[in-house]
Amino acid sequence: MVQATAVAPVPVSTEVYQDLQHFYARQMQSTDDLDVPAWAGSFTEDGVFATNAFPEPLTGRAAIAAHCERAFAAQAEAGIVRRHVMTMLAADHATGPDGDRVHTRSYVMVLETRRGEKPVIYCSTLCEDVLTRVDGDWRVVRRQVHRDDL
C-alpha cells in the first residue's frame, strides 16, 4: 500500500509576511472600532466567514456586513469594547487560480471590557484564513474561526 506523503508548507517571504501583519492590524482594529465597511470590505465579494459559534457560514460580503451591522450595534448599545489580539501568525503559500493565495493560521484572543468594569477574556480562538490579492490589497476569501470554548 502506498502512503500519501504530506507536502511541507512553503512560508511566504519576509516582505509578504510584514504586509500580512499590516493587513491584520488594520482588519482587527476595524472590527474593534465597529467599522462595518472596513471590516466587511476586507473580504472578497464572495468571501466566507465560518465559525463554530454560528450554525451556518456567512457567504458574501453583503451577508457579512449585514451580520456585523446587527452585532456591532448590539455591542455598542451594551457599552462593550472588544479588542482582538492576534498572535502566532503563520503564513504559507496556498494554491489558487491566480497563484497569489496565502493560507494563514493564528491565535486570536478577544478581550472584552464593559463600562466601569475590568477587561475579561471573551474568547480564545484559532483563526484560519485563505487570502488573495485584489487590486494590490489582501482580501479574505475564506475565514474559519474555531472558538476554544465551543
Rank of each mutant, 00 (worst) to 15 (best):
V110M: 10
C68K: 03
Y17S: 02
T14E: 14
D129V: 02
E117Y: 00
Q144Y: 08
L111N: 05
T104H: 10
H22D: 15
M109K: 15
G99V: 13
A6Y: 11
G136P: 03
Q21D: 09
V7F: 00
A66C: 06
R139L: 04
A73Y: 05
G136K: 05
G41R: 03
D129N: 13
D98P: 02
R114N: 07
H146T: 15
V10D: 15
A53S: 15
A25E: 15
R147F: 15
P119C: 04
T125R: 00
Q27S: 07
Q3R: 09
T132L: 04
A63N: 09
S30W: 05
E117C: 00
R139H: 09
A8K: 06
P57G: 01
L126P: 00
F72W: 03
V7A: 10
A25G: 14
S30M: 03
H103A: 12
R143Q: 13
V81W: 14
D32L: 04
Q75W: 12
Q18M: 11
V7K: 12
E56P: 01
M28E: 13
S30A: 10
G96L: 04
L131E: 06
T104I: 05
F54T: 07
R139I: 08
Q21V: 02
R139V: 06
F72C: 09
Y17G: 02
A50K: 07
A66Y: 03
R101D: 12
Y24G: 00
A66R: 10
C123N: 07
T51C: 05
A90M: 14
P57H: 04
V145P: 02
S42T: 04
D46R: 10
A50T: 07
V102F: 02
A50R: 08
R114H: 11
S106Y: 04
T59K: 11
Q3W: 02
V36A: 09
R115P: 04
L20Q: 11
M88S: 14
T104K: 10
F72I: 01
R142G: 02
T14M: 11
V102W: 05
L150H: 14
T87K: 06
S42Q: 01
G99T: 14
A6R: 13
G47C: 05
T125N: 12
C68A: 12
T95G: 14
H22C: 10
D129C: 01
Q29K: 15
A63Y: 02
G96N: 06
Q3M: 08
T113M: 06
L131S: 06
A73F: 08
M109D: 11
A94H: 06
T113Y: 03
D33S: 13
F49R: 04
A73H: 09
V110N: 11
F54D: 06
V134L: 11
F49S: 07
A6E: 14
T14F: 12
F49E: 06
P9W: 03
F72A: 07
C68H: 08
M88K: 08
H93W: 14
R143V: 10
D129H: 08
D149A: 10
N52F: 09
V134A: 11
H67C: 05
L126G: 07
Q18I: 01
D148Y: 08
S13L: 05
Y122C: 05
R115K: 14
R82T: 10
V12D: 05
D35V: 08
Q18V: 01
R139N: 04
R139Y: 02
L111R: 04
P119V: 04
L58E: 01
T44N: 03
V85L: 09
R61Y: 02
R26F: 04
R83D: 00
